[in-house]
Simulated scan of single mutants.
Amino acid sequence: MSRAIVSVTNDLNTDQRVAKTCDTLVDLGYEVLLVGRKLKSSTPISRSYKTKRFNLLFNKSFLFYAEYNFRLFFFLLFSKKKLLISNDLDTLLPNYIISKLQRKKLVYDSHEIFTEVPELVDKSFVRRFWTSIEKRIFPKLKNVIVVSPGVADYYEKAYNVHCHIVRNIPKEISVKPLALPFDHQGKKTILYQGSINMGRGLELMIDAMSLLEDYIFMIAGDGDIIETLKEQVKQKELENSIIFLGKLGPAQLKSITPLADIGISLEEDLGLNYRYALPNKVFDYIHAEIPVVVSDLPEMKKIVETHQIGRVLKDRRSKELSSLIKSMDKRQYSNALKKTKKELSWSVEKEKLIHIFKHLN
């Protein structure tokens, strides 16, 4: 049996895109090993394939990336494999070197435009470092997967490399909704799920909650600015209107999402990464059959307007956002969401992935 080693820098628990890739490889007859790292907050993981998580001395800053890439290089060097799958730029260097040294096939799955993430905007040295790696390696890649047409267009123009588009659409599974873990007192609920980082529009949504007395805003996830947001909520005395659910497992999240009345994805236009983003949560909302409010950015806007499954926020002011939300009724989008859910299915995206793995260069 051929062995595929899939590498990421996260702790494996919540990366559903990578999980779907691994499941597809298993279906194709590969022996799969998924490699990531272990954090203090990491919970046990059980998959149909093998997993390995590095215990690192450093889990933040440039030292983390240096240590992880060093460990990954030597692990890959002495591991049996036929296929390497690198997820994002922070795992590419060791995968590329090993693929050349040992003449192994390499697939690069870019979940974002890594050098354009907002976290690197003010870190010129770090950004130049990652850009230099990308410029040296990307033009030589033969099997590249990206998450949206905008990202594909960016890389194809920058490096003249063809990119396959595989959107991060959730699997079609039947989930029994749970009760919300708090008393919402008959109020409508707004949901944000995902990373709690800068540029996600969460500050704007919190401001808008002062004008949305009949709503509760649920935030599911964790990240760099979580404490800042909690302080903002406290200062505005909105503790009864904004609920921090914390980091939820995929199954628990899928059970809660359908209970919301509206899902939001309000990324700011902070560089090309967000501009061309097609976030997982947009598809998660669609498959949970809840309407969405998205930023006026090309990829998200196209999905919402083409399928008529929500609204696009044109004016990023709290008054305008609150008015837009008040104008929405979950029931009016029900038919469009059911139809879109069938059209935007993982079964279609999976066939694209299978074709890629069967025709590797």
Rank of each mutant, 00 (worst) to 15 (best):
S48I: 13
R317L: 11
L266W: 07
E112C: 12
S99R: 01
T115Q: 05
L76V: 00
T9N: 06
R37S: 09
E227F: 09
I219Y: 04
L93V: 15
Y159S: 00
K319S: 13
I219G: 02
V107C: 09
E203I: 09
W130H: 06
L313T: 05
E172W: 08
E237Y: 12
H359T: 14
A277L: 09
L270V: 05
K302N: 13
R311M: 12
L321N: 14
S148Q: 09
N160E: 06
L248R: 02
W130K: 06
R136I: 12
R3D: 02
K140E: 13
F64Q: 01
V35G: 06
G246W: 04
D122V: 09
I98E: 00
K234E: 12
L266I: 05
A260F: 05
D11S: 14
V8H: 01
I226K: 15
S41F: 11
I354Q: 04
A220F: 08
I354M: 08
G29D: 00
K341D: 07
L93N: 03
S7G: 07
S124E: 12
L202T: 03
H164G: 07
L344D: 02
K38P: 08
N335S: 14
D315G: 07
A336F: 11
N273E: 11
G223C: 08
V126I: 14
S327G: 01
E305P: 10
V35P: 04
I290N: 06
F73A: 01
M300A: 08
H164Q: 13
F125N: 08
L202Y: 02
W346R: 05
D269H: 05
K341L: 04
K123C: 09
I169D: 00
N87K: 04
I225S: 09
R275W: 07
K188R: 12
A152C: 06
V35A: 09
R136H: 10
E112W: 09
V121K: 15
R53I: 03
V6M: 02
P250E: 13
D153T: 14
K281I: 01
Y276W: 04
A152Q: 09
R3K: 14
L84N: 01
E343F: 14
L202K: 02
L57V: 13
D261I: 06
S210H: 12
H355Q: 13
F129A: 02
D224I: 10
S2T: 09
V144G: 01
N168Q: 06
H307G: 07
R275H: 13
L76M: 06
R317E: 15
K352R: 15
T115M: 04
K234I: 07
D88F: 00
T91R: 02
E67P: 08
N197K: 12
R317Q: 15
K339F: 10
Y108L: 11
K254M: 12
K38S: 12
L321Y: 11
L297S: 03
G199P: 03
M209P: 07
V144P: 04
Y49K: 03
N55M: 06
R200E: 05
S322F: 03
L92E: 05
G186V: 11
D261L: 06
V144D: 02
K82M: 10
S42K: 05
